[in-house]
Write a protein that binds this DNA or RNA. Structure first.
Lengths: 103, 103
DNA sequence: TGACATTATGTCAAATCTGATATATATTTT
DNA sequence: AAAATATATATCAGATTTGACATAATGTCA
């Protein structure tokens, strides 16, 4: 958002800022959130490419559909490690993972 | 280990195999262990480069020396996510992280 | 539209992870 | 070698994460 628009909005009483500012995320925390979001996207893409549903993908990854759905949404209750495990479970390689994380 | 030696040992009653076979780790689990071990090494290297002790590094990372030590050892009680957070806490960049993970 | 399939959300007990304290062991310095 | 510093290990209460179940919401298609 450019400075002019920001000032116009603030004049109208809006609180203007980025999501990370609002949530008060440090650069490190941001980096992790970024990686999680990138992984979530990659997981969905990978599953679709394999022609699986959340139900079948969950079975492959040996978990429930509900948790699998949360993983695909990078839900707050899901760790980076679980996301990576699921990605591997769908057949992703380390190379694919690194490419995804660098996004 | 070469085949000849393996057979000699087995003849003597030894059970011969790799660590991952013994622990029955899947390729995915192996990949995660690998990343953790690489991160542990990188953490130690980074801390030493900064001239910090575990006590001071733990303070920077806002945790205790004992937990910090466990992180450097990729202890079983430490998640990948915590290791990454600690790495960032010491000032590592995403680029550095990816380089480390690819090792 | 109504069945059926798929995905999303709420909840919770069990499992795992975390920070902290205590203490042991190892290394360095004097 | 003793003291001081640094690192390692054990333990545990509290916090977080996980898997599962129930159910709601959304999408698909005959």
């Amino acid at each position: 958002m450019d400075q002019a628009k920001k000032e116009r909005l603030q004049k109208k009483g809006w609180v203007v800022g980025d999501v990370d500012e609002f949530l008060e995320l440090s650069p490190a925390e941001m980096a992790i959130v970024e990686m999680k979001v990138a992984l979530a996207k990659a997981l969905i893409a990978k599953r679709k490419k394999l022609g699986e549903t959340q139900v079948s993908a969950a079975a492959i990854a040996k978990t429930s559909q509900s948790r699998y759905a949360k993983v695909e949404h990078a839900d707050a209750s899901v760790s980076l490690e679980l996301m990576i495990k699921m990605f591997f479970a769908l057949g992703a390689t380390k190379k694919e993972l690194l490419k995804t994380l660098s996004a």
